[in-house]
Amino acid sequence: MMMVLLAVLVWLALWALNVRLARSAAGGVRAAVPLIFGLATLILWEGVVRGLEVSPIILPAPSAIAAKFVTEIPTLWVDFSQTVLKGALSGFVIGCAAAFAMAVAVDRSPFLQRGLLPFGNFVAALPIVGTAPILVNWFGFDWHSKAAVVVVMVFFPMLTNTVQGLRETDAMQRDLMRTYAASYLQTLLKLRLPAAMPFVFNGLKIATTLALIGAIVAEYFGSPTRGMGFRISTEVGRLGLDMVWAEIAVAALAGSVFYGTVAMIEKGVTFWHPSQRG
């Protein structure tokens, strides 16, 4: 019981520290606030698990997970490269590129645009992950089927965002390009694609999370004996929850880095957009 009490006290103390930090204005200090909050929550978790002697089958302590993580780095790396690098990343690139190309292709026909937008928006809201068993059946157990699931999942969000983005320029801007006697291609490259970039990146950011989900779900339906989804489902069966948590930590890390990378590129490309001018 002492452990739990102590952990709660530490949590409260760190929260109080956060309250003080939040009032100060310095930029570096502000970045510390969420980190301290995360640390405090980990300490609380550790304290509760140890103090109440929660069985590791229900909830392992963060220290146990960290230990498992360190000893299992080779396995985790194999799983990571199978699921994220081969499955999710290649699917992400193919799916987003295909959707982008298609959006540019239908761009010349307002009729098709009007048809694709509501349809694509509807499809983007559907549980596409359900196609995973079908695609695993078609493309086999290795990473190709995982990439296929990812392609299908990221295609429509990316398509609707790009189509929407290409419509963003207003008549005044297009007229200006016309007075410059710009060709279709020039207008597209110099005006409309740059103007579409905030939307394109919105689509890419949505696609990053979908890509990981797709790659992992597809592994539940059959995979070679490696991969994050495979490891999670077998370790859950063996009640090795510390390994499951270690895989989740990898997934969270991969997801955050993936998202962060796209967000950073966005910052570089759409520096002119109001949402990026801080």
């Binding site: 956060n18 939040a22 969420p34 301290i36 909050f37 989900i213 992992i216 489902s233 859950v236 499951v244």
Partner: peptide, 28 residues
């Protein structure tokens, strides 16, 4: 303000964790 600064970034990060990784565990 404290809540905004400490919770909001974690809410964003929570969405980058693929939920399916958690699904079997939540059930167990």
């Amino acid at each position: 303000r404290v809540m905004e600064m400490s919770v909001m970034p974690w809410a964003v990060i929570s969405q980058t964790i693929p939920i399916v990784a958690l699904a079997p565990m939540i059930i167990v």
